[in-house]
Design a protein around this nucleic acid. Structure first.
Lengths: 215, 215
DNA sequence: ACGGTATGTATACACCGTCCACATACGCTA
DNA sequence: TAGCGTATGTGGACGGTGTATACATACCGT
């Protein structure tokens, strides 16, 4: 027989789901988007997929495993937002100006994602499992780079333009990343939570400027 | 009758605990210290206090409420570590040198706490409840200042010494805090988790230096 | 001395992650 | 084309969690 059509009726006509793994992953992403890592609960994901709880275990070894998959997806999403921001920078600048603009774009994209997709951002950096930006292709953006690599490329441009001394290049991503990441964290679940959004953006710009100057 | 002695025997001789609130809080702190915010589970805390689960509700409105209390304690602990580091700076320096040393001490103490008391540190900054450094006295250190106020004092010294322009003083704590906080986060549950500890300290020093320069 | 109230107990519920045994449908091979 | 092995989903259960509701006990002020 040919491939059976997927029916949407919850009435049991299918038994086989078709692509349950994807359905569970997407449900997990939706949950994480709305409520962060702790909101992704296995049973709810299976409920949304119209399937019994244990079915999840055919595709994910554990809840933690599903979380990990969602995290990879979130990381990839972050990379895409950063890429989009990088693509916005105007052409026709000097190499130096272009490099600095790119670095700023990396920071801005990172913050944009943190503020507009807070749930996914939190999921991407959920403790305590050391996530580790491994070479998982699911964590990359359209350009094939993960967020850390995107930042590294911007810094490379900076040294190529002579704006970042070669001897200070190693480890520089950690300096830049720390500042922007910390700022994002403080905003989304810290004391800055009450500060008006306009001020937030201004302070964010100062953070990026500080990195540029202090690197 | 006079005050009844607290017996340690689990055999039910007491009924009244004596100071259950403190016992629960301390159990919560121990749990958080060992496993971070998610490790603090109400039933386990009551178990350690030798009491039935629901007894906790006489002292904490919910698990979240207990978590909040533990968080305050963790914040106070952080302040103490920072104060200890500040106290270490050598006297007899110029006002400028002293101010810079104090700022470095604030950063160093923050990182020391994050690395040695990771569980408590994570608890102090647990998402998603906006914690908000309110004027809760339980969140202060021995000097009566919370971590943010400690940082603010160091920055004030810096402007007093003419090393930080007055117009850049407002909001400066967020710049400095962001960098150090982000670095701590990346180390304790990020890609730097595999980097040897000695390198970590070196990079940490660079982060603080970047803040000093870029502020 | 006593009665109200603060504190702890008993029981119960819904929900969670996960294990085990069983049922079903797909896809390959004969 | 028949049949069978295996991937996938079902059913039921277990221990653990936070929390509500009703009950019991000891303390304290009148």
């Amino acid at each position: 027989m040919t491939k059976k059509l997927r029916s949407k009726t919850p009435a049991r006509t299918t038994y086989r789901h078709g692509d349950l793994r994807r359905a569970l992953l997407e449900a997990g992403i939706a949950l994480a988007r709305a409520g962060g890592p702790s909101a992704i609960v296995l049973r709810e994901a299976t409920r949304r997929a119209g399937v019994v709880p244990n079915a999840a275990y055919r595709h994910f070894a554990s809840r933690q495993d599903l979380l990990e998959a969602v995290r990879s997806a979130a990381l990839s999403e972050l990379a895409k937002t950063m890429e989009a921001e990088i693509a916005k920078v105007r052409r026709g600048k000097s190499a130096g100006e272009a490099a600095r603009a790119k670095l700023r774009a990396v920071g801005t994209g990172y913050l944009r994602f943190a503020f507009t997709e807070t749930g996914l951002f939190r999921t991407a950096f959920a403790a305590p499992e050391p996530l580790g930006f491994t070479r998982d292709p699911a964590r990359k953006g359209a350009s094939g780079l993960d967020p850390l690599e995107l930042l590294g490329a911007a810094l490379d441009d900076l040294t190529a333009a002579g704006l970042l001394p070669l001897e200070r290049r190693p480890g520089a991503e950690f300096l830049a990343w720390s500042s922007v990441h910390g700022f994002a964290m403080l905003v989304i679940n810290g004391p800055l939570h009450t500060v008006p959004r306009s001020d937030i953006d201004a302070i964010g710009a100062r953070v990026v400027a500080m990195v540029e100057k202090g690197l």
